[in-house]
């Protein structure tokens, strides 16, 4: 099919729509009087709540760490410190998400808005990775030095720590888009909550492809003009 035929085909569709499409003004008018909020904006309150809650939690952890520094078990102190560092990173991601939410404008160019929305969604996966990463501390913070007096208990404790640490590190490095079709990935990340996250990463890839072809077309035009 030639280009002109294609355009003419679309124009014929346009004409048919023109003749048949009617705006129900009453129904459309109803939209202008109902109290509504933007869908993107509606995501912000929950994120802000999480930022406030995690900041308060971090403050509490800071006080605990400061007060117990002199006498607490090093296992407890360092476990809580690692937990606090990771929660601080997670809070940082939530702040980044709120910034993206407030920057999102649907009347902006399609690629800018889609990039922001895709970054917003895909950063949720980073939060999941960070939460997995700090799983081992739940096996270490309650260790008492006297436990090491019992060799059996010590072996069991070390085994549990190693299993959690290896598992957490493995998940942290392997939770990525490339593994989305693997069974373990689908087992953890499935359902309505996670499907949009995976799709948003696909969208980021698609946007990247456009960027690459943009460079290709710019380079091609430069080569042509150089000649």
């Amino acid at each position: 099919m030639q280009e002109t035929e294609l355009i003419e085909l679309w124009r014929s569709y346009d004409r048919k729509l023109e003749e048949n499409l009617i705006l129900n003004r009453q129904n459309a008018a109803a939209i202008t009087v109902i109290k509504i909020k933007s869908t993107v904006g509606s995501m912000a309150p929950m994120k802000i709540f999480l930022i406030i809650a995690s900041t308060l939690w971090l403050f509490f952890l800071g006080v605990v760490l400061y007060r117990t520094h002199a006498y607490a078990s090093p296992f407890f102190w360092y476990s809580i410190a690692i937990h606090a560092i990771i929660i601080a990173f997670v809070t940082g991601v939530y702040i980044y998400q709120v910034v993206l939410i407030y920057q999102t404008d649907l009347s902006e160019a399609l690629f800018n808005t889609q990039r922001r929305l895709a970054q917003l969604k895909s950063s949720t996966l980073l939060i999941a990775r960070l939460m997995f990463l700090h799983a081992p501390i739940w096996t270490t913070f309650s260790i008492q030095e006297r436990m090491f007096e019992n060799p059996v208990w010590m072996v069991v404790q070390i085994f549990v720590i190693v299993v959690f640490a290896v598992g957490a590190l493995w998940l942290f490095f392997n939770i990525k888009y490339e593994n989305r079709h693997k069974k373990w990935f689908r087992f953890i990340f499935h359902g309505n909550q996670w499907d949009p996250v995976i799709k948003s990463i696909e969208m980021l890839r698609e946007l990247e492809q456009y960027k690459t072809s943009q460079y290709e077309s710019v380079s091609a035009s430069q080569i042509t003009s150089d000649r």
């Binding site: 048919k16 499409l21 009617i22 705006l23 109803a30 109902i34 509504i36 869908t39 509606s42 949009p196």
Partner: peptide, 23 residues
């Protein structure tokens, strides 16, 4: 729409059809 977020979950149900095709 990709996320299939239903508007009524966020706010409240909207009105009926806005655009109608005669055919």
């Amino acid at each position: 729409f990709r996320k299939q977020v239903s508007r009524d979950k966020i706010n409240h149900p909207l009105t009926d059809e806005i655009l109608t095709l005669m055919a």
